[in-house]
């Protein structure tokens, strides 16, 4: 009993850890997409952030400076996406693909040039990473049945970015639905003409949204290389940015359902490592690759309307041009 509880808790614990980068990136996507800018560039921003954080932490020994660098790198790419999509009215999908490609290449080239260990950064020592935070009373309460282990194993003992990511969900919901900024962002994603005629600067608003996303993707990248991992590897995001976007769509562009979608994807990921070579009763051995592909298959099914219908913000992907 206690064993299976611990097994379950460790499964949920890794689910939470694996959900964090998805969640941060998905929330980044939330701001951009609700403002009408396609957020296919999450992958590239996250990857650039991961590299910047690891490289800076490796050189300075400070995780916090690494985080700042991650935010700066991610912001720079967000600004490029904003310039192409908003100022130049370019194709947002093409712009995002370009950014992802540049990030993939540039991080590998710079990692190799600066550290010369095959496109990686050196392994970071513990004090150059975000360490685990033990919440108050975690030790003393661990004796309490059921709730004690839950608190000690699942709630306590994560790094600060994990708590930040989960707190950002209610914060984002609050911003989106209870503040002026949120009202305007949601409006500009639906009908930019309405925003323009109300005397609000459409371009500035959209830049704000894209840059907020830049900051959040910086967090996501730093988490990957300096909290969850201990250094950067070439293409270490491995599609997480696309999965985050998928989670946002699966969550129908709303914060809490997006969180649930991220948790679902992360759960599949956590399960996959635990199911390797395990035969399930009645089903037999489930191919690991199937579980691995599950998030992608789910996204396809949802988009096709087989799992509920997702209605995107109406003006998404369309450059705003004043119309007569």
């Amino acid at each position: 009993m206690a064993d299976s509880l611990l097994w379950l808790l460790s499964l949920l614990d890794s689910t939470a850890r694996l959900a964090v980068p998805l969640l941060l990136a998905a929330l980044a996507g939330f701001y951009a997409e609700r403002a009408g800018i396609i957020a296919l560039h999450l992958e590239g921003k996250m990857l650039a952030g991961a590299f910047a954080a690891a490289a800076t932490a490796a050189v300075t020994g400070s995780a916090w400076l690494g985080l700042l660098a991650a935010i700066a790198a991610s912001l720079a790419l967000a600004a490029v996406h904003g310039f192409a999509s908003i100022s130049q009215r370019g194709n947002q999908v093409v712009s995002a693909v370009a950014i992802n490609t540049v990030a993939l290449g540039l991080t590998a080239v710079l990692a190799n040039a600066w550290f010369q260990i095959g496109g990686r950064t050196p392994n970071l020592p513990a004090d150059a990473r975000f360490g685990e935070v033990t919440l108050p009373l975690a030790q003393s309460l661990s004796g309490v049945p059921v709730l004690g282990p839950i608190y000690a194993e699942l709630v306590s003992g994560h790094n600060i970015l994990v708590y930040l990511a989960f707190l950002l969900v209610p914060a984002t919901a609050w911003v989106a639905y209870r503040t002026r900024l949120g009202l305007r962002l949601r409006a500009v994603g639906e009908n930019p003409s309405a925003v323009d005629t109300a005397g609000i600067n459409v371009a500035r608003l959209r830049y704000q949204a894209v840059l907020i996303g830049g900051v959040l993707c910086g967090f996501a990248g730093a988490y990957l290389s300096t909290a969850q991992g201990a250094g950067f590897q070439t293409n270490m995001t491995a599609g997480k940015g696309y999965l985050a976007l998928a989670a946002l769509i699966l969550g129908k562009w709303r914060p809490v359902p997006t969180l649930l979608a991220c948790l679902l994807f992360a759960f599949a990921d956590a399960l996959q490592t635990r199911l390797q070579g395990v035969a399930l009763p009645g089903i037999g051995q489930v191919p690991v690759q199937l579980i691995e592909a599950l998030p992608y298959i789910l996204t396809v099914l949802l988009l096709a309307g087989f799992v509920g219908k997702a209605v995107p913000p109406k003006a998404i992907g369309q450059p705003y041009v004043k119309d007569r």
Binding site: V94, V102, G105
Partner: peptide, 17 residues
């Protein structure tokens, strides 16, 4: 991977910009 960077920049300038 330098070629990937070049590729990305070409996509950016020939496509989005």
């Amino acid at each position: 991977e330098l070629v990937i960077v070049i590729q990305g920049v070409v996509i950016l300038f020939a496509g989005a910009l």
